[in-house]
């Protein structure tokens, strides 16, 4: 089941550079929330705070509160948290020394799953969900690097899905995909919200409009506006949101 997220006064730094300047946001379970905003405004940093990936880098700092179904994520072991909060990165990052199959089941193996039948079934299911199964089913033992960029990204999506998290963070998962694969992924996201809470960073406004229940607009490390997608796109309250949506923005 998806879990809700509640974010209070979230601030994040890279060195002395303050990237997030006090974000407050409620994310409801089993919904797709789109994060939009110009390049460099802190979208990736924001989602990387939610699975505590930001703080793994040297000289970074996070302050504020994030809770998952009412429980602070800082009370959880980060390893356990990341099994609940999965992530697909902006840049595809399959493990080059592993086969396609091994990539998909890498997370399951970390969780201690050994049963071959189960692993196989789970790999197929995840690859189907990520719209990659038909392209790779005959060469599952090939290297993950033998795939095209877009295929690699879908492989990473399958890898994240395989561990069945309850929250899925997706940082521009479709930026390297062709329209057909993008459509598949969008369908996937729409169907996944039955099970997951999904937060997706996207530069594609139409995509946000198509798949997101709610949309948040970030600007220079601040959350300008967050509301139902239809409202953000048709009747934004903030002038800056309107400018960005209508493309009158740098």
């Amino acid at each position: 089941m998806g879990q809700s997220l509640s974010i209070h006064n979230l601030e994040a730094w890279y060195g002395s550079n303050k990237i997030l300047k006090g974000i407050n946001m409620e994310i409801r379970p089993n919904q797709v929330t789109a994060i939009i905003g110009p390049s460099g405004c802190g979208k990736s940093t924001f989602v990387r705070c939610i699975n505590r990936m930001h703080e793994t880098l040297p000289r970074t700092r996070v302050r504020g509160e994030i809770s998952l179904d009412g429980r602070s994520i800082y009370d959880l072991n980060p390893v356990a948290l990341r099994k609940t909060v999965g992530m697909v990165f902006q840049k595809a990052n399959p493990f080059p020394s592993m086969s396609i199959y091994d990539n998909v089941v890498a997370g399951l193996r970390l969780n201690g799953m050994k049963n071959k039948q189960e692993l196989k079934a789970s790999a197929e299911k995840s690859l189907r969900m990520a719209a990659l199964w038909d392209e790779v089913k005959d060469r599952l033992n090939y290297s993950g690097m033998s795939l095209s960029g877009g295929q690699q990204q879908r492989l990473c999506i399958a890898r994240a899905l395989a561990v069945e998290p309850s929250v899925l963070l997706m940082d521009e998962p479709a930026s390297a995909l062709d329209p057909i694969a993008t459509t598949h992924i969008e369908e996937l996201i729409r169907s996944l919200k039955e099970i997951y809470t999904i937060i997706i960073v996207t530069h594609n406004m139409q995509q946000a409009a198509r798949i997101a229940d709610s949309t948040a607009f970030f600007l220079s490390g601040e959350l300008v506006e967050h509301g139902p997608t239809s409202e953000i796109f048709t009747n934004p309250h903030d002038k800056r949101t309107e400018d960005y949506i209508t493309g009158r923005f740098g």
């Binding site: 699975n51 990936m53 793994t56 880098l57 390893v79 356990a80 990341r82 099994k83 999965g86 992530m87 990165f89 840049k91 990052n93 399959p94 493990f95 080059p96 020394s97 592993m98 890498a106 997370g107 970390l110 969780n111 990473c156 890898r159 994240a160 561990v163």
Partner: peptide, 29 residues
């Protein structure tokens, strides 16, 4: 070893040692 490789492992819920085992050592072997 690119940091993305480490993050890929961590994001799947790997511990530090597991990250070294599945992401760092195979890449560097």
């Amino acid at each position: 070893v690119p940091n993305e490789q480490r993050e890929a492992a961590l994001a799947l819920g790997a511990t530090k040692w597991e990250m070294i085992r599945i992401a760092v050592l195979p890449y560097a072997k």
